[in-house]
Computed example of a mutant assay.
Amino acid sequence: MAEVYTLVVRKPCFDLPTGCPQCLSAFIYLNFAKFPFQLNFHLNDPHSDKIPYIEVGDDYVAYDNENGGIIECLKKDVGVVDLDSEVSSLPDWVSIKAIITTWLHDALVYELWVGSEGSSAYSIYYSDLPWPIGKVLSSKKARWVKSKHGITDDNAVVKQEEIYARAGYAYDTLSKLLGEKNYLFENSPSSLDAIFLAHGLVVLQALPESSALRVKFLEHDNLVKYVQKCKSELIEAGPHPHTDASPLGSRSQSTKRPKPKSVPKREKSEAEKTFKRRGSYFVAAQLVAVVVFLTLMVTFDGTEVEVENDVDGDF
């Protein structure tokens, strides 16, 4: 029996199969590679840095926060064709990869959480969570982004101009590189096409019309056509993978493991049932306490002016 490959991503939004740029780049790469896969949505912990991840049957899972990211895992560990094998040695490859994965990545992250006041990011990452938890996580991420770029109240305008200037230079460079071709290199798709197309789709579909990053992107007609062509051919026209939108929990590690043997059920004793009931009451009480605490944190967080030096990882 053939293995079943399932790409697990954040939920669809903004008329995209998933609103998350990392998830979308993996989705596009698999379609470029003509690799058969199913699509599923992780709804339990949508802010987890493990998403996206790929499941191979019941025995293997590879996460985005391992081994260089999800696309590298697809190429090296899952057996998806390496679309970069013929182009990664070209002179411009390293510099273009750096532009896309640093300047444009940083600009989109900044725009999602800070520049556009976090409304689009909230829809993508937190809207399935209870409001107080989503609000706290969103505020924490915005502070982390500011801390990463060294943004304070005194230099916020200057830092923002620097971020947008680098993004504008990146768009100019990519527009010249693309020209009238269908793809960035050698007229065949690569991982950089997948990553940049995901970036462009989120910029055009998820950011508000007033977004400075979106305005800069729209200045380059060939980049806009490039992204629109991807949307019509890969996303709207198919091929569409089988989709199961049931909630999923994340697996603990990316490794092969045997399936557990079934164990005959035994009847629970009265003492065990009582203990379980008490445990449920305790968990419920703790949950109420956490919600109250997070609500108070949100109230306090809204009064913050100074940027904290929050050391944290990407969601």
Rank of each mutant, 00 (worst) to 15 (best):
L192D: 00
W103I: 01
A170R: 08
E270C: 01
L104S: 00
V8A: 02
H240L: 14
Q205H: 13
N187S: 15
Y226W: 15
F196P: 01
I124D: 01
R278A: 09
Q160P: 02
G179C: 06
D153N: 15
N31D: 10
V56G: 01
L39K: 11
E55S: 14
G115L: 08
I54G: 00
W113H: 14
V292I: 10
D244T: 13
P264Q: 11
S254T: 08
K11G: 09
N309P: 06
D92G: 04
W93Y: 14
S85G: 01
D310F: 06
I235R: 02
A289E: 05
H149T: 09
Q253M: 13
S116T: 15
F196N: 02
K259C: 10
N155Q: 12
I70V: 13
N187G: 12
F315K: 08
W103S: 13
F27N: 02
A107K: 08
A289R: 04
G69R: 13
E117D: 11
E304P: 02
L108V: 15
A156W: 05
P12V: 04
P241S: 05
K268G: 02
I163G: 01
S252W: 06
L24N: 03
G200N: 04
F275T: 10
Y60D: 14
C230W: 04
S232Q: 11
D106L: 06
L24I: 05
F37Q: 00
P46S: 11
K261L: 12
K259L: 12
E233F: 03
P132Y: 06
I100R: 03
E180P: 00
E86N: 00
S254V: 04
K50D: 14
R266Y: 08
S89Y: 09
V87N: 07
I54F: 01
V263Y: 07
S127K: 14
Y122C: 08
K216W: 04
V203F: 06
T6V: 07
N309Q: 11
N65V: 05
K229V: 03
W144E: 13
P36Y: 08
N31K: 15
V288S: 05
L192Y: 00
F32W: 00
E186W: 00
H240S: 10
K181A: 12
L7A: 03
W144D: 13
K135H: 10
A156C: 07
V94N: 12
Y53W: 15
N187A: 09
K225F: 09
R257D: 03
K11Q: 14
L218Y: 10
Y29M: 03
T102P: 06
S246N: 14
L234Y: 07
S262D: 02
I96E: 08
K76V: 01
G68T: 09
K97A: 04
Q22V: 07
L30M: 15
L24Y: 08
I133M: 10
K268Q: 12
Y226V: 05
A165D: 13
T102Q: 15
V109D: 11
D244R: 09
S89A: 13
L90G: 09
A285E: 07
H240P: 07
T152R: 06
G79A: 09
V305H: 11
A26Q: 04
V292H: 09
L137F: 07
D301H: 08
M1I: 14
N67K: 15
E236K: 15
S89L: 11
V158C: 10
K259R: 13
C13T: 12
E306G: 04
R214T: 07
E111C: 13
A237Q: 12
L43A: 09
V109S: 11
D15P: 02
D64A: 10
